[in-house]
Write a protein that binds this DNA or RNA. Structure first.
Length: 425
DNA sequence: TCTGGGGTCCTAGGACCC
DNA sequence: TCTGGGGTCCTAGGACCC
């Protein structure tokens, strides 16, 4: 029988912040999205005082006064580094590990010499906590979807104490399914949950009783796979070597809406060069690019407009000047004056490894004069040594109105020499 | 005043081919 | 008068995830 564990960090971003600032322990704390827009991580105390996931920050400010809510800007350099530490600890517990997201990891337990899975889970929790400072929960099931479901219950139940194994007895699975609202199942989002509700399907258990035909019709092939997994048939296997990305996006909401072409252009140059850096880091080249910009959808009183254009890159490239040039051509052709643009971005698509590029009869060797590969390697090398943005293209002043807001960011404690935590005697 | 960013997969429909 | 059917590829949009 297949056995999967899902290890999930509790309130991950908040937990990372607490490792370096223990004074946040016991307090209601949230971490906000980019641009300080809304809550993306909440401590248990913040959940208790009624902070919802994705609650807009401006609706939470009053809780700072009334309940001592601490609102932090997100610090992805810190979370990414802490994530790597947690994952490296987890890898010591099983040869089969799939890093599923920044704060989650599936482990394949099939064939591991473990007889008490609950005790083993508690050992994982203790080890990760001691070595990284991060609290985690562990759920175990015969499919990935059931491991997810077990993990959710492990977090909720006091008795479980952060670890729940559903593999010992089919009755445990049935009980777990019955106490899980259908909308909390992995793979059932808002739309499908609403559809289920209308049809009197309230729990995960109810969902397993529906006919395959009905499930396929209302939730498609993906929904059917989810239900098979709830019934105990493994469909999703462990993916330990994730394949290359197909797309990469760099986009931001602006701190404030901007009307001028020049400002949107500066932003697009910045996004294009970030996106190019990203794919170079993965050893990929892009066959095309999309550039987009749109107005503030939360202001229906203002004129709305959305521009989007697709530019082919032939031959496929990861060179920053080529990608910036294409993005600007796209922006110019679809640009319209007279709108307050609130967000823009660049998406690199049709990503491939250079050796997999199909031969093109007519394409010319790229850039006869300067070798873009050497140039880009030099640029990336300097930035890696001296810090992000040491050299680059375009003009992106720190005070440009389109730069994102980020008023309360903690230091990059673990990834920047200048920001190491200091211990005072 | 103020609402994130980055992904995946599937499906329906149109264009095109024979 | 009468106007097929099956296949592929591409794209846009919609669902989901963290």
């Amino acid at each position: 029988m297949a056995v999967y564990a899902l290890v999930d960090c509790n309130n991950f971003y908040v937990s990372c912040e607490r490792v370096f600032n223990p004074a946040l322990e016991g307090k209601p704390v949230i971490v906000m999205s980019n641009n300080d827009g809304c809550a993306v991580a909440r401590s248990a105390e913040a959940k208790i005082i009624g902070v919802d996931m994705a609650a807009p920050a401006f609706k939470l400010r009053h809780l700072v006064e009334s309940h001592g809510l601490v609102m932090l800007s997100s610090n992805y350099a810190l979370y990414g580094d802490m994530s790597e530490r947690v994952m490296s600890v987890l890898a010591t517990f099983s040869p089969g590990a799939e890093v599923y997201s920044i704060d989650e990891c599936f482990l394949d337990l099939d064939g591991l010499p473990v007889d008490d899975l609950t005790a083993w889970s508690q050992q994982i929790r203790a080890t990760v906590r001691r070595w990284t400072g991060i609290p985690v929960s562990v759920g175990i099931g015969s499919t990935k979807t059931l491991a997810k479901l077990a993990n959710r219950l492990a977090k909720k139940s006091k008795k479980a104490n952060g670890a729940l194994d559903l593999t010992g007895n089919p009755k445990w699975v049935e009980a777990a399914l019955k106490q899980t609202p259908v909308g909390d199942v992995w793979g059932i989002g808002r739309q499908y949950a609403a559809h289920c509700g209308v049809n009197g399907i309230c729990t995960a258990y109810d969902l397993t009783l529906q006919s395959d035909g009905w499930i396929k019709k209302t939730m498609g092939a993906v929904g059917l796979r989810t239900v098979m997994e709830l019934r105990g048939t493994p469909v999703h296997t462990l993916d330990t070597a994730p394949s290359d990305r197909q797309t990469t996006c760099c986009s931001r909401s602006f701190g404030e809406a901007v009307e001028g072409f020049d400002q949107v252009r500066d932003a697009v140059v910045t996004f294009a060069s970030r996106a190019a850096e990203k794919i170079r880091g993965q050893g990929l080249v892009a066959g095309a690019l999309q550039v987009f910009a749109y107005t503030d959808r939360f202001r229906p009183d203002q004129p709305q407009f959305s521009l989007n254009s697709l530019i082919r890159l032939s031959p496929p490239t990861s060179s920053t000047p080529h990608i910036i040039g294409a993005a600007l051509r796209g922006l110019e052709t679809s640009w319209r004056d007279g709108y307050g643009y609130k967000k823009a971005g660049v998406i690199l698509v049709d990503l491939v490894r250079p050796e997999d590029i199909p031969r093109d009869l007519f394409s010319q060797p790229q850039d006869a004069g300067v070798k873009p590969k050497a140039l880009m390697a030099a640029v990336d090398g300097i930035n890696s040594k001296l810090g992000k943005g040491a050299v680059g293209y375009g003009f992106a002043p720190k005070d440009a109105p389109w730069q994102m807001r980020c008023d309360n960011r903690t230091p990059s404690y673990t990834t920047s020499w200048d920001e190491l935590p200091v211990v005072k005697a």
